[in-house]
């Protein structure tokens, strides 16, 4: 049985390599059919804002790539209620859709996975 992995993504989309690295782990693992989940925490929730554009900052389109996660078998997507609320995103339509969890539920979520990595 493959070990399950939770990737905690807490970097904003265009600020550095962190967000891209987290997504690459998820896509690679998904392509190999590994049980992978992603949690968007802190500035990581900014990745979920619709209507972003990679071209003006001359980067690969991370936010477009994110939409492919379910096709790569990564369906378990979560975000922190607190992080969303702090950033005024809690009641916005976000993409891809995530299950929103409060702090206590996040602690429980970590417990459910064999391995956790935070980027």
């Amino acid at each position: 049985m493959a070990k399950s992995l939770l990737i905690i993504c807490r970097q904003a989309p265009w600020s550095g390599p962190g967000a891209r690295e987290a997504l690459d782990i998820a896509l690679a693992g998904g392509a190999f059919d590994l049980p992978i989940a992603m949690l968007f925490l802190d500035d990581g929730v900014f990745q979920l804002q619709p209507g972003q554009h990679a071209a003006p900052v001359q980067q690969k389109d991370l936010t477009a790539n994110l939409q492919a996660l379910p096709l790569f078998g990564v369906d378990a997507l979560y975000s922190s209620v607190r992080s969303l609320e702090e950033r005024g995103l809690l009641h916005q339509a976000l993409s891809p859709a995530t299950e929103t969890l409060n702090d206590a539920a996040l602690t429980a979520l970590l417990g459910q996975y064999d391995q956790v990595i935070t980027l």
Binding site: L27, K60, D61, A64, N65, F72
Partner: peptide
């Protein structure tokens, strides 16, 4: 066009 990447076999 939608995802800006080439899919692996499964996707």
């Amino acid at each position: 066009a939608e995802f800006q990447l080439s899919p692996a076999t499964r996707p």
